[in-house]
Design a protein around this nucleic acid. Structure first.
Lengths: 244, 244
DNA sequence: ACCTGAACACCGTTCAAGT
DNA sequence: ACCTGAACACCGTTCAAGT
């Protein structure tokens, strides 16, 4: 109810675009993206809703801004990793980067949805993808293969896969799917039942039912291994790279 | 302005859940999902907004309903394909099914977003995935591998990949990205520039910038080939299947 | 320069009331 | 049984006005 103590800046320090965006991130982190309204945002900052429009053009720009903050957090985190010891190590390097990005996203579960809703591409996202592309390109992949790679990875490059169904209702705890399956769906959906019965998705870091950590890594490795094979095959056909 | 002639049913045939949902689909098809409001929906049916609530519980149920319609369209289309000549042909069969699903989705560009927004899984989606899982399972893949496969495919199984950025703004025509890149971003994003310059995404069936047909098929084949390799390796380790 | 009050045009939804 | 009018509680946003 009462406005929480802001992160160091007092409630009556003058507003700024930065302060607005940071407050927006923390609201989304705590209450989900649906709870982020202009009026709620103003309240968090101890101000009237209309005051926000002096610092941001409209809500869409707020969403652009909070995506930027999160992706910049990813870029910072990924920057600490540093270049691979050898460019030929591109696969491990890409893998590490993507899993680091995912870790950041785990702290902002609303971010995947908002990132996908943005129609323009933010500089931060461009920077991320450019660096990732660079890793592949310097690793020796052709420009064409790098292009395909970016498309094949898609949102996985940023560390998430949008889940198709999330039976536990996003942030809330719901009824156990396995139980439902066991109870009544066994003969209507025999193959799904078999799968759900054998699986234990519990207790893992997750961005939704279809995006638990081990499945994310499985899919990621499937793609990275595939790219490596395609690259090796191309190398074989046109052998001109120096032996290490 | 004036209500268009409905698809065979006149404007004054009594309302029904079915008529409401079909009108909703056609509004979304024509004006995008944002244009689908309860008031607009009522207007399309020549009725007051409040009348809708007699036939559907709330807007969320409308969204559930239109997803169901689209996925049932997919199931119908995919049902025409029939079983593979041999279960061992699972890869081709799965590929054909998924590309057929994609074709249906091409007629409902709003559907991917709404499908992902649904928190519960519709029977139609369960049926689709169960059938797809069955193809893999009957093809000889282990239950575990089928499970991984479903996760790895994710939304690709239904025929789409959610695009990360869509510089041409969804349904509208926008400025050419390649031109922007050429103009000013060449040295800030060298690798991306190289990729965009070499690419021509034009004139193809598309669900967004990152989801054109050839890239979709590239990613799909990467995953299917990877699954096949994992399966063959497992078969080799435990060789007990009959020779064809 | 920075913030606000009042108001507008939209939402989804409820509920008592009409036929 | 089926539809409606009036109203409510929310949105994002504008604009003239305050300090």
């Amino acid at each position: 109810m009462a406005p929480r103590a802001g992160s160091r800046t007092d409630r009556h320090t003058p507003l700024s675009k930065d302060r607005v965006l940071r407050a927006a991130v923390s609201i989304a982190d705590e209450g989900g993206i649906a709870s982020l309204t202009m009026r709620r945002l103003a309240q968090e900052l101890g101000v009237e809703a209309m005051s926000l429009y002096y610092h941001v053009a409209d809500k869409d720009k707020v969403l652009d801004g909070i995506v930027d903050i999160v992706v910049n957090e990813i870029n910072a985190r990924v920057g600490e990793i540093g270049a691979p010891s050898s460019p030929a190590d591109w696969k491990a390097a890409v893998r590490r980067r993507i899993l680091a990005a995912r870790e950041v996203l785990l702290g902002h579960p609303w971010a995947p949805g908002v990132i996908e809703s943005r129609t323009n591409m933010s500089p931060a996202v461009l920077r991320y993808f450019d660096a990732l592309g660079g890793l592949l390109r310097e690793g020796g992949l052709s420009a064409d293969l790098v292009h395909h790679a970016m498309h094949a990875l898609g949102s996985r490059a940023l560390g998430f896969t949008q889940e198709l169904f999330d039976p536990n209702g996003g942030d809330e705890v719901g009824p156990d799917v396995a139980a439902i399956m066991r109870a009544q769906m066994a003969d209507e959906y025999p193959y799904l039942t078999e799968i759900v019965m054998g699986a234990s998705h519990n207790g893992e870091a997750t961005l939704g039912w279809c995006d638990d950590q081990v499945e994310f890594e499985f899919g990621l490795d499937l793609i990275l291994d595939g790219l490596e094979r395609l690259h090796d095959r191309a190398e074989l056909r046109r052998p001109d790279s120096s032996a290490s």
